[in-house]
Write a protein that binds this DNA or RNA. Structure first.
Lengths: 114, 114
DNA sequence: ATAAAACATCATTACATACTGATATGATGA
DNA sequence: TCATCATATCAGTATGTAATGATGTTTTAT
């Protein structure tokens, strides 16, 4: 039976992983591993532009990876589920072994040297 | 300290997750969860074009997520590490809880109805 | 009420990359 | 060797989406 006979689950999963597949979003998620942060704090921690952070946060929130809570005029963001952190940790471990391959994977984009 | 002070780890991780963040690659990885397959078998199972499958397999192989082994004129592919399957399983679990959010996330691309 | 701060949204631009079809490479058997 | 099968590579195209700058919205303080 074709896997694509039921494409929805795959599409959903791909969409979930896409939340993790961008450096900026990953920076945000990593920053939130140590606890909740306001948008401004995330901007400072990641060094990204505010509008960019807001965009990514909106995406991460829509997809359920982070939660927002209004606190006065600040909005505090946090990872929405332990398993988000678990996925990050598991990826860390996997990366420790396959890092060489990933690093040398220049098929699509080359990591910028500097 | 800026997280971006050491961007390499983040970039690598993003690249790793990008391996999982495309429906086609995910279909391939899912197909390989049940054991090794030849390229032709993957083509049949996923319903993707052969050149497309080969491209994605090259990417997945470069990044260390799958292993290739030549067998006669066939090439057999397999997941390269248990943790690849673990990541898929963990994502399944997470998805079970946040699926609603992911499904409704139309920020970027809308899942095609049919 | 007004101003300022914190955050969100929008349009635009630029780039990355998935897909296709054609072709090339390599292995096997006649 | 030659033909065929299995897989890989390539160029071209189209689309998705990250980043930016400008603007909108909400909250708080004066």
């Amino acid at each position: 039976m074709l896997i694509t006979a039921n494409p929805k689950a795959i599409d959903l999963q791909a969409k979930l992983f896409r939340g993790f597949s961008d450096s900026s979003r990953l920076s945000i998620l990593e920053a939130l591993r140590d606890g909740p942060l306001t948008v401004g704090e995330i901007v400072q921690t990641t060094g990204l532009m505010q509008s960019n952070v807001s965009n990514h946060l909106g995406c991460l929130r829509d997809c359920g990876l982070v939660q927002a809570e209004q606190q006065g005029r600040y909005v505090s963001y946090a990872l929405s589920d332990k398993r988000v952190a678990e996925l990050l940790r598991l990826a860390d471990e996997l990366l420790a072994d396959v890092a060489k391959g990933v690093y040398e994977c220049t098929r699509y984009n080359v990591p910028e040297e500097q």
